[in-house]
Design a protein around this nucleic acid. Structure first.
Length: 474
RNA sequence: GGUCCCUUCGUCUAUCGGUUAGGACGCCAGAUUUUCAAUCUGGAGAGAGGGGUUCGACUCCCCUAGGGACUGCCA
């Protein structure tokens, strides 16, 4: 990799750096989204780096799961994805430089010694300090040892955080973190700094669990005489009960939200509104989010996941989404549910989706709302409907059948007018024939207005269902 | 234990010393009505507590309480 990255329009480079030890949860997804939004807003670049330096816990399945989640959300790296482990040599090279410059040292403390020191440091309320910091090497320098950063013992380090504001740490509170493990493997804190520097990252936007690390990492940047990036530590997302996100909240992986029928753009909108806002704007598209977003406006406090609001936001995106796309997504959901579908299900859905999408919050709900149109003739009618079909009603529906058969145009407003004038000419309200007609056309399934039902079904199917019912009562 | 962060309606947020503290979701009521929704109208609902600073604090400072992160040869 080049150590002098290509400049962007604005010079801004952000990155999302997940560690592949599990699926992509929505907290991580939002972090990625904020990085992406900020890069787009500034005309900069958004990069992805997989932090797989922990060989024990990193898995390929997790890598795949994370990218599946990111792809679904539409967040792609503007450059090739970097895998941190592949850069271990470069990390070691930097440590070597620090060693030579006296900014790092070898530490031969054993695990037992370390534990004892840790206990002591904790009791005293101080940061841990290795005795090898200033001591000469042991008799056998080849004995197992780590390499630690040699941090300053006085002064303060300022993290001028984009979200939290200026935060200062006394250097004496910051311990000498391990740079290279005993097996020569680089650690996280070293690898992030080196990679962010080499990748030209200008804005590190990440979870606020890293705020403390930012101070330690700042020290490493300074030791290498590198430019320190701007930091923006965003609060974590909590479950509806205010506690950390977990399984019992129903979902935390973005893939689960996809399965539950949320739209990626709805998810992006909702996630963006969690911890960030732009005046009174609640429902917005990507273009708007990009033009409005600034890390500096991110809220400092953690936000809770609110399903009701997610549903609302998603429903708003659902109603403006392309019908063909929604029909396709609905069909996929139905297939995933192993639903019993007619051969022409796709065509039926395409006709039905526009008539029912306003009432749906998710694709799954959309599928439920489309169920009436997927039934195959002859429909089995509900007891309630059968009861309503007395002679008077059958005769009235028969007259309606004639009118419908003669309808010159089979459209939403035409059918609405036809039904209205029919009610007028019969001298009755909709209550006299609406419920039974509905039952006949839907078999009892949830469905929209009668004119929408018939528009969705089309002339042939609508009349067919009506004829079936009337014939059975003849 | 130590360091650091956070705290406005139930929830997400606006406010950047002077507002009847605004909006959204949800909730409640009404309207509509051919089921369920959707839609429309109205309503209830908040500055954790205590000190300061100031003519005036949600807003600035301090303390307390509560929540959280870090304190790993995890990231």
């Amino acid at each position: 990799m080049s150590h002098s990255p290509a400049p962007t329009n604005s010079g801004v480079v952000t990155r999302f750096a997940p560690s592949p030890t599990g699926f992509l949860h929505i907290g991580g997804a939002r972090t990625a989204l904020f990085n992406w939004l900020y890069a787009r807003h500034t005309g900069g670049k958004f990069l992805i780096r997989v932090e797989d330096t922990d060989r024990e816990r990193s898995t390929e399945a997790a890598v795949a799961a994370i990218f599946e989640g990111l792809d679904w959300l539409g967040l792609k790296s503007d450059d090739e994805v970097i895998f941190q482990y592949s850069r271990a040599d470069r990390h070691r090279e930097v440590v070597q430089q620090m060693l030579e410059a006296g900014r790092a040292y070898r530490c031969w403390m054993t695990v037992e010694e370390l534990e004892a020191a840790r206990e002591k440091a904790r009791a005293e309320g101080k940061a841990i300090r290795s005795p090898w910091r200033d001591a000469p090497p042991p008799a056998d320098p080849s004995a197992p040892h780590v390499i630690r950063f040699k941090g300053p013992l006085d002064g303060e380090t300022l993290v001028d955080d984009l979200v939290k504001g200026p935060v200062t740490f006394r250097n004496i509170e910051l311990d000498d973190l391990v740079l290279l493990r005993a097996d020569g493997a680089p650690t996280y804190n070293l690898a992030v700094v080196v990679d962010d520097h080499d990748m030209g990252v200008t804005h590190v936007i990440r979870g606020d669990d890293h705020l403390n690390n930012a101070a330690r990492q700042t020290l490493i940047y300074q030791a290498m005489d590198w430019d320190v990036p701007a930091f923006g530590h965003i609060p974590l997302i909590h479950g509806p009960d205010g506690a950390k996100l977990s399984k019992r909240h129903g979902a935390q992986a973005v893939g689960e939200f996809a399965d539950m029928g949320y739209l990626p753009e709805g998810m992006r909108n909702y996630l963006a509104r969690l911890g960030w806002g732009h005046g009174d704007d609640e429902v917005f598209n990507d273009e708007q989010a990009i033009s409005w977003f600034d890390v500096r406006d991110v809220v400092k406090a953690p936000a809770r996941l609110d399903w009701a609001k997610l549903n609302f936001i998603n429903s708003q995106h659902l109603r403006v989404a392309d019908d063909a796309r929604l029909a396709d997504l609905t069909l996929r959901a139905l297939v995933a549910q192993k639903a019993d579908l007619p051969a022409d299900a796709a065509a039926r859905l395409l006709n039905t989706v526009p008539q029912v999408k306003e009432g749906a919050k998710t694709i799954l709900e959309l599928a439920e709302h489309c169920a009436f149109a997927l039934k195959v003739r002859p429909l089995s009618l509900e007891e309630k409907t059968l009861k309503q079909l007395n002679d008077e009603t059958v005769e009235r529906l028969g007259r309606l059948r004639v009118l419908l058969g003669e309808a010159p145009v089979w459209g939403l407003s035409e059918l609405e007018n036809l039904l209205k004038s029919f009610a007028e000419s019969e001298g009755v309200g909709f209550g006299k024939f609406g419920p039974p007609l509905r039952g006949i056309l839907t078999g009892g399934s949830q469905a929209p207005d009668l004119n929408k039902i018939m528009t969705a079904l089309g002339r042939e199917e609508s009349l067919g269902r009506l004829d079936d019912a009337l014939a059975s009562r003849a």
